[in-house]
C-alpha cells in the first residue's frame, strides 16, 4: 500500500507540474505580450509599461514561471488588474459558492443514482428496469443548462417556490441553501442518470461472474449476494465514473452559474475573460485543474482501498 501511495503521489506531482506549464504557456506565452493584450490597442504606453513591470514581463520566462508557482505555493495569486484586489481573496469568496454547489450536486446525484441503479439491476428486464433506464436515457441527453432554464420557468416563475437566481450569501444559511437548490438539481439529474446506468451495467456484469455462483452455492440468497459480493465489485467501474463526474461537475457548475446569475468561480473567470484580466484567468484555471487532478488522485486511492489486487502493484 505504501508503495502504491508513493507511486501515485509521484504521478500526481508530475501531472500538477505538467498542467501548470500548460496553463502558464497558454496564458503568458501564446498571446505574445500579455500586457498589451490585456490593455487593448489604445492603451497609453506608460500604462502598458507599468503593467509589464507589475507582471514582471521583462524577466526571463523561467523566472516568471517559478515566480508564479512560488507565489501560489504561498497563497499569493497576484493582484487582479480589473478589481485591484488580491486574486486569492477574490477566488476564495467565489469558491464559497462553487464548492458547496458542486458538493451538493455530487451528493444529490449519488443519493439518486445508487438506489435506482440497484433496483434496475435487481429487476433486470422487468418493467421497472425499463422505466428507470428509459428516464436515465433521456436524462443523459439533456444539456444541464437548458434543464436549468426549464426548472427556473417552472419552480421560480410559474409556481414561485424557489428563487430564480442570484445569491444572498451565507449570512442567512437557509436563504443561501434555497438559492442553490435549483442549480444543484439541474447539475445533479443528468449526472445521476449517467451514474445509475453505469452502476446497473457494472452490477449486471458482476452478477454474471463465477464467484456470484459460488456465493449462491454457499447458501446466500439473492439479496445477500447482491449486497455482500456484487456491490463492492461493481464499485470499481463506478468509482472511475464518479471520479470523472467530479471533473464534469466542476465544469458544469461553472456553466450553471451563468443560468442562475450566481457569483461563483465560473462567473469570475468569464468576466475576467471579457475584461481580459489574464491574472485572474490564469489562477482560476489553475485552481480548476488542481481540483480535477486532486479528485482523480483521491479516486486512485479509493481504488486501492476497494481492490486488494492494486495494493501490491503500481
Amino acid at each position: 500500500m505504501a508503495r502504491y501511495l508513493l507511486i501515485r503521489s509521484f504521478a500526481l506531482m508530475l501531472s500538477l507540474l505538467a498542467a501548470s506549464v500548460v496553463v502558464f504557456v497558454a496564458i503568458e506565452v501564446v498571446p505574445g505580450d500579455p500586457a498589451s493584450y490585456m490593455l487593448g490597442m489604445n492603451a497609453a504606453p506608460d500604462t502598458v509599461a507599468a503593467l509589464r513591470d507589475q507582471l514582471g514581463l521583462d524577466q526571463p520566462l523561467m523566472w516568471r514561471y517559478l515566480h508564479w508557482i512560488g507565489g501560489m505555493l504561498h497563497g499569493d495569486f497576484g493582484t487582479s488588474y480589473t478589481y485591484k484586489v488580491p486574486v486569492a481573496g477574490l477566488i476564495a469568496d467565489r469558491l464559497a459558492l462553487t464548492l458547496p454547489l458542486a458538493g451538493l450536486a455530487l451528493g444529490l446525484s449519488t443519493a439518486l443514482a445508487v438506489p435506482l441503479g440497484l433496483i434496475a439491476a435487481a429487476q433486470r428486464g422487468k418493467a421497472l428496469d425499463t422505466v428507470v433506464m428509459g428516464v436515465a436515457q433521456l436524462g443523459i441527453s439533456v444539456p444541464n443548462f437548458w434543464f436549468a432554464m426549464l426548472l427556473v420557468l417552472l419552480f421560480a416563475l410559474h409556481w414561485q417556490v424557489l428563487p430564480a437566481g442570484g445569491f444572498p450569501g451565507w449570512s442567512d444559511p437557509v436563504a443561501g441553501l434555497r438559492a442553490l437548490i435549483l442549480p444543484a438539481v439541474a447539475l445533479a439529474l443528468p449526472q445521476a442518470a449517467i451514474l445509475a446506468r453505469v452502476l446497473r451495467a457494472a452490477l449486471i456484469e458482476t452478477l454474471a461472474q463465477d464467484y456470484i455462483r459460488t456465493a449462491r452455492a454457499k447458501g446466500l440468497n439473492r439479496r445477500q449476494t447482491l449486497t455482500r459480493h456484487a456491490l463492492r465489485n461493481a464499485l470499481i467501474p463506478v468509482l472511475t465514473i464518479l471520479g470523472m463526474q467530479c471533473a464534469f461537475l466542476i465544469a458544469g457548475a461553472i456553466i450553471i452559474e451563468n443560468v442562475f446569475y450566481l457569483p461563483g468561480l465560473g462567473r469570475l473567470i468569464f468576466q475576467a475573460i471579457t475584461q481580459r484580466d489574464l491574472i485572474v484567468v490564469e489562477s482560476g484555471v489553475m485552481l480548476l485543474v488542481i481540483a480535477v487532478i486532486a479528485v482523480s488522485f483521491v479516486t486512485d486511492l479509493t481504488y486501492a482501498l476497494v481492490d486488494p489486487r492494486l495494493r501490491g502493484s503500481a
Binding site: 470523472m244 471533473a247 465544469a251 484567468v281 480548476l288 485543474v289
Partner: peptide, 13 residues
C-alpha cells in the same frame, strides 16, 4: 495530463 483539462477548461484557456 489531458484528463486534467476538461473541454471547458481548455476552451477557457
Amino acid at each position: 495530463l489531458i484528463f486534467a483539462f476538461p473541454a471547458l477548461v481548455t476552451a477557457i484557456l
